[in-house]
Computed example of a mutant assay.
Amino acid sequence: MSAKLKAERDEARSIVRDIHWMAVRYADNRKSYAVGMCNDALRKAYEAGWLTYTRDNGKLDPQYARDGLFDREWVSALDNATARAEKAESALASSQEEIERLRKALEPFGRPNDIDPSLPDSTWLGVKYEDVFVAHCHAGDFRRAARALSPSEEQGAAPRPQHEGME
């Protein structure tokens, strides 16, 4: 290593020793990324031997900045946010169960059928069971059910071929 480079290195280490306390004072008890960033730099400086941990006037020289995210006010806010997140996750799980229940209820209407594709959606159709009409619905109801049960292209599914008689 050249003498000039060695002198520059020693000067940089001296600067770190002279101003590290300002960085610790700035970052100490902050509620931001500054605490971790400062402590990471300090850890490297201690490991490299640029800084030494000392006691000053009987008080502990601050070796690392303390994280302000763990004071009572922030812990309370974190607990509240966690409770809201857990409630939202529970609501989402319930919604997903309801969606699955509705999907199963729609399945019979979304299956391939022989409805004439030229029929307007508003056309009434009768559903027969053993020669008795048991329900009436629109042709469009079957088409909407089939679309609702088909994965969308936005969800990454390839377009599904439609059965004859379905839009």
Rank of each mutant, 00 (worst) to 15 (best):
A7H: 10
A7N: 14
E8K: 12
R9Y: 10
R9T: 12
A12P: 00
R13Q: 13
R13L: 13
V16C: 08
R17P: 04
R17D: 06
D18H: 07
H20A: 09
W21E: 08
W21L: 03
M22Y: 10
M22T: 07
R25D: 12
R25T: 04
Y26F: 13
A27P: 07
D28M: 02
D28S: 08
N29G: 05
N29R: 12
R30C: 04
R30K: 14
K31L: 00
S32M: 10
Y33C: 05
A34W: 06
V35L: 02
V35F: 02
C38R: 00
C38E: 09
C38D: 02
D40E: 07
D40G: 11
A41R: 03
A41F: 09
K44D: 03
A45C: 08
Y46C: 05
Y46R: 06
E47F: 00
E47C: 03
A48S: 11
T52P: 00
Y53T: 01
Y53K: 10
Y53W: 03
T54K: 09
R55V: 06
D56Q: 01
G58C: 05
K59G: 00
L60M: 12
L60I: 03
D61L: 03
P62H: 02
Q63S: 09
Y64M: 11
A65D: 11
A65R: 05
R66Q: 14
D67A: 02
L69D: 06
L69N: 15
D71G: 12
R72M: 08
E73V: 15
V75T: 13
S76T: 14
A77I: 08
D79L: 13
N80H: 14
N80T: 14
A81H: 11
T82S: 04
A83K: 06
A85L: 14
E86M: 10
E86T: 05
K87Y: 08
A88V: 03
E89I: 11
S90V: 04
L92V: 08
A93G: 04
A93E: 06
S95M: 13
S95C: 11
Q96T: 08
E97K: 14
E98A: 15
I99H: 04
I99V: 11
E100V: 09
E100R: 15
L102D: 02
R103E: 03
R103K: 10
R103L: 00
K104N: 06
A105Q: 05
L106C: 05
E107Q: 15
P108W: 01
G110A: 13
P112E: 03
P112C: 06
P112T: 01
D114E: 13
D114K: 13
I115M: 08
I115A: 05
D116G: 08
D116N: 11
D116A: 13
P117M: 07
P117S: 04
P117C: 02
S118C: 02
S118H: 07
S118V: 08
P120D: 11
D121A: 14
D121E: 09
S122N: 12
S122G: 14
T123C: 00
W124G: 13
L125K: 09
V127I: 15
K128G: 01
Y129P: 01
Y129T: 10
Y129S: 09
E130M: 06
D131L: 04
D131N: 14
F133Y: 15
C137A: 10
A139L: 05
G140S: 07
F142A: 03
R144N: 08
R144P: 02
A145D: 07
A146N: 11
A148R: 08
A148E: 00
S150W: 04
S150T: 15
S150N: 10
S152M: 04
S152C: 10
S152P: 10
S152N: 00
S152K: 12
